[in-house]
Design a protein around this nucleic acid. Structure first.
Length: 575
RNA sequence: CGGGGCGUAGCGUAGUCUGGCUAGCGCGCCUGAAUGGGGUUCAGGAGGUCGGGAGUUCGAAUCUCCCCGCCCCGACCA
């Protein structure tokens, strides 16, 4: 491609809408332009990279046995009602009406469509396994689109759905997708870490997210340096023992009676930990009130622990919950946050973190404003419906596998593999007859990659102060030929044209900067757009029969004109 | 949805508090010249519903109200 013939609107200054490096560079390098919040046009350079990523995904999906299809983005609400997600996913569903007032939804994902396909087309175990995938535009009514392509209203996703005859077979499908994902991100030049992910209300062990460590990530990943453990913080556990485990075993009957004491002005764990009370946070009980499916529920944790909502969802089997409002809490418990406790509560279900099990000599709110109570024994004084792991792991705690300190790092989720089981196949009657003629629901898995988000994650991971540093595999063009001057009859331009056609014939994607711009402009632009290798041709070096080769971010070297093509090809091959 | 910030030419911005002549500057763009190895220089030029509406006023980018849009934080830790 000739620079003068394509469209690469680079910007010297950053539009004020961009906050993070990758978003700024997407705009400055002329890859995308915003139509409105969360909606972007891909310009030639951005689209080329996107297509290269898509192609890598296709090749690896095909290699793993995936079958490419294309499903409708516009979908009838009926299938969403059938799966039950018309209600549960309604927050993200874009809805529209046609001329006869019939309702439609824009697909945020395609489990319903693909399951309905399987329901009508799959009838025998002989047809299984199958793995259908597509690269499609998804629509989600995001609460807050942000960071350019990172969280958009409309975005491109690769989604795959596997159908198997059994759990064991589904695990094989799952593993095959997992392996494909490792190869895909590797080929994209992206360091993406597979981590154990929360399985939400479906449960089970089979869910991994592929995370790109980045300051601007929206997820926190807990991992150990040895690589033996990595999990989303929503899912992560640690090897830490409860501080209360050190308490001597004492008969409940031997414990002191609970005692109420005044705590004017004390509304936080921290305040109670300070003088004059000096109750260590890990000997306080934190009382959190939630509204779960319109009913109050209490969660108890040690004072220095933080509640993990994803774990709530797992234990309760529901995502329909929210923190209670202070007014609601006052109605139910007779006190406001800051003085809450579960002692004596028997009409509201109380769930307690495992760390509280058997604890005594604890302090908690009295359910009377400005009062707390001490000498609380969990076993004696609190009616706990169930104990479970509700706490959020913190950096520095021991790894559950190696015992080494855990690290916490924010990361961008670029991929997710998930064993679905039979949730959708049962709801939508996607079943098959086995060898014995018995009908069984298909065991499903789903596997997503945010294609547009991956593009941005690559830029977030591969850039410097000058611009993008594309991995060759996903660069819009691998090579940028930069003649200094653009007179067609000049020796410089003749050499440039010759290299351009030779490299193009060799199958390399080449950009020829044939613009009538000064050298500085061309250099700056080629670095901003981020071509992996630049071939500089000017009078000076040409006088010695040489041209200049400069890998992006690497050292400049001079080579003979006749060796130039070989050098470039070798360099690309070495990547 | 809650909180905060912003909205002036394609981009970045000054001016707004304290109302007042023709809304200023840089980049980019157009014309011409010089220059030609790191966003070069000089001269000339085009480009503005000051987000929209209503109001206050002799007079509004500036003050008031409403609306729209964009960005950030939050929507768990009592």
């Amino acid at each position: 491609m000739r620079w003068s013939q394509t469209f690469v609107p680079t910007l010297k200054e950053t539009p004020s809408e961009a906050e993070i490096a990758s978003h700024k560079l997407l705009l400055r390098a002329g890859l995308i332009r915003k139509l409105t919040g969360g909606l972007y046009t891909f310009l030639p350079m951005g689209l080329r990279s996107l297509q290269k990523i898509s192609q890598i995904i296709r090749e690896e999906m095909d290699r793993a046995g995936g079958l490419e299809v294309l499903m409708p983005a516009l979908q009838p609400p009926e299938i969403w009602k059938e799966s039950g997600r018309y209600e549960t996913a309604s927050d993200v569903l874009f809805k529209a009406k046609d001329r006869s007032q019939r309702e439609w939804v824009l697909g945020p994902t395609h489990e319903e469509v693909v399951t309905s396909l399987a329901a009508s087309e799959i009838s025998s175990y002989r047809q299984l396994p199958k793995n259908f995938y597509q690269i499609q535009t998804k629509f989600r009514d995001e609460i807050r689109p942000r960071f350019g392509l990172m969280r958009a209203r409309e975005f491109i996703m690769k989604d795959a759905y596997s159908f198997d005859v059994s759990d064991e077979a589904a695990q094989t499908s799952y593993q095959s997708m997992f392996d494909a994902y490792v190869r895909i991100f590797d080929r994209c030049g992206l360091k993406a870490l597979p981590v154990e992910a929360d399985t939400g209300v479906i449960g089970g062990k089979f869910s991994h997210e592929f995370m790109v460590p980045a300051e601007v990530g929206e997820n926190d990943v807990v991992y150990v340096e040895t690589g033996d453990y990595a999990a989303n913080v929503e899912k992560a556990t640690s090897g830490l023992k409860s501080p209360l485990a050190d308490q001597e075993a004492v008969e409940v009957s031997a414990l002191s009676a609970v005692e109420k004491f005044a705590t004017p002005g004390v509304k936080t764990i921290d305040a109670l930990a300070k003088a004059p009370f000096n109750v260590p946070a890990n000997h306080q009980i934190k009382t959190l009130v939630y509204v779960v499916e319109d009913k109050p529920v209490i969660f108890l944790l040690l004072g220095n622990d933080q509640l993990n909502e994803a774990k709530i969802a797992g234990v309760l089997g529901s995502t329909q919950f929210r923190p209670a409002e202070p007014a609601e809490i006052n109605d139910w418990l007779g006190a406001y946050p800051g003085s809450l406790g579960a002692v004596g509560v028997d009409d509201i279900p109380v769930y307690a973190d495992d760390f509280l099990k058997g604890g005594y000599d604890l302090t908690t709110g009295a359910n009377e404003n400005k009062f707390h109570i001490r000498n609380v024994s969990v076993e004696r004084d609190i009616k706990v419906k169930a104990f479970a792991d509700f706490r959020t792991v913190q950096a520095g705690e021991p790894c559950p596998i190696t015992g080494k300190p855990l690290m916490v790092q924010s990361a961008i989720e670029v991929g997710h593999v998930f064993k679905l089981g039979s949730k959708y196949s049962e709801a939508m009657n996607a079943s098959f007859l086995d060898e014995t003629g018995k009908s069984n629901p298909c065991i499903m898995g789903c596997y997503g990659i945010g294609v547009t988000r991956t593009l941005q994650a690559i830029i977030e991971q591969c850039h410097d102060d000058h611009g993008i540093k594309w991995p060759v595999s996903v660069a819009p063009y691998a090579v940028c030929i930069t003649p200094l001057g653009n007179k067609p009859e000049s020796e410089v331009m003749k050499v440039a044209e010759s290299l351009y056609s030779q490299l193009t014939e060799a199958g390399v994607d080449v950009m020829l900067d044939d613009r009538d711009e000064r050298p500085g402009v061309k250099f700056k632009d080629s670095e901003l757009v981020g071509f992996p290798i630049r071939v500089g041709i000017g009078d000076r070096s040409l006088a010695n029969g040489e041209i200049e080769i400069k890998p992006r971010g690497g050292e400049l070297s001079k080579v003979k004109v006749d060796d130039a093509v070989k050098h470039v090809l070798d360099w690309i091959k070495s990547q």
